[in-house]
């Protein structure tokens, strides 16, 4: 038996919003520690990793580890039926093939129950080992969102350069070139508005904006975002979900086209 209750449906809605562009179907792995989801996008360029610890739930019970195969689009439709303030409960039998969503309104006067059929998704469970990164940049999530949105009007690729002074995002395309620079300003009082750069050495990497724009769908989940970079390793974009866990996106660095053709 698996059962988990969350005080605010809004959180689950936001989580779905953050993964639905990358993943169509995924296994939600439930263990006694919490719920996790790990999936690559369909073109195998990026990976999303979601963790919701049991502490984040009002109530959490998981008798044995189970895997819930969920079609994200179907779940999103069901979650649309919940109000943001509703409490939501997920329930699944150990051997069952459905998951039940229960929405209770804040005033306890309305209870709705939805049953969704599960899918049997046969896929490898892939994870990326945690490691130290050469450079990390913490910045307001909305700022990052804006940068990605603006630069994607210029080009398809963004070059991220980290120096002691700040971080620079550059995109160039047929129409021209755009550069946005953020200075290190850890001095701002409000923590969510801080731009904090920690680095061992300067580096400059390129990433596909198309995917970054998928990642920023998670902006609603957190005030700030952390970008962790190391040369020749995937970029990690992490949004902390308050009191609950995180959603992390991994994006393979872009290889220059020229190299690519030589290799072939």
């Amino acid at each position: 038996m698996f059962e988990a209750r969350m005080a605010q449906a809004a959180l689950l809605k936001k989580v779905l919003e953050a993964v639905k562009d990358l993943v169509t179907d995924a296994n939600w792995d439930c263990t006694s520690a919490g719920i996790s989801l790990q999936a690559m996008d369909s073109s195998h360029v990026s990976l999303v990793s979601l963790l919701m610890r049991k502490d984040g739930f009002d109530m959490y019970r998981c008798d044995r580890p189970i895997s819930l195969g969920i079609n994200i689009a179907s779940m999103t439709k069901i979650m649309k039926c919940a109000n943001n303030n509703d409490a939501v409960t997920l329930r699944a039998e150990d051997e069952g093939d459905t998951v039940v969503f229960t929405f209770e309104s804040a005033d306890q006067e309305k209870v709705s129950e939805f049953e969704m059929k599960l899918m049997d998704i046969d896929s490898e469970h892939l994870g990326i080992p945690e490691r130290e990164h050469t450079a990390t940049v913490k910045m307001p999530a909305s700022e990052f969102h804006g940068i990605c949105r603006d630069l994607s009007t210029i080009g398809e690729t963004v070059q991220v350069s980290v120096t002691k002074e700040g971080v620079q995002f550059t995109a160039s395309g047929d129409t021209g070139k755009g550069t946005i620079t953020l200075r290190n300003n850890s001095s701002v009082d409000e923590e969510s508005q801080q731009v904090v750069i920690t680095m061992q050495e300067e580096l400059s990497l390129s990433f596909a904006l198309r995917y970054l724009n998928f990642f920023t769908k998670a902006t609603a989940l957190a005030d700030s975002v952390t970008l962790s970079m190391t040369a020749d390793l995937p970029l990690v974009v992490e949004y902390r979900i308050e009191d609950t866990g995180y959603i992390r996106y991994f994006l393979a660095p872009k290889i220059d086209d020229d190299d690519d053709e030589d290799n072939n």
């Binding site: 263990t31 580890p65 393979a252």
Partner: peptide, 24 residues
């Protein structure tokens, strides 16, 4: 997809799942 060539696959490690119930 030329604009984003390079796969995340080479950086991942597969974790074992149950052959029967797919649990981690």
């Amino acid at each position: 997809d030329k604009k984003s060539r390079g796969s995340i696959m080479s950086f991942t490690r597969a974790k074992a799942t149950c052959r029967s119930c797919r649990a981690l």
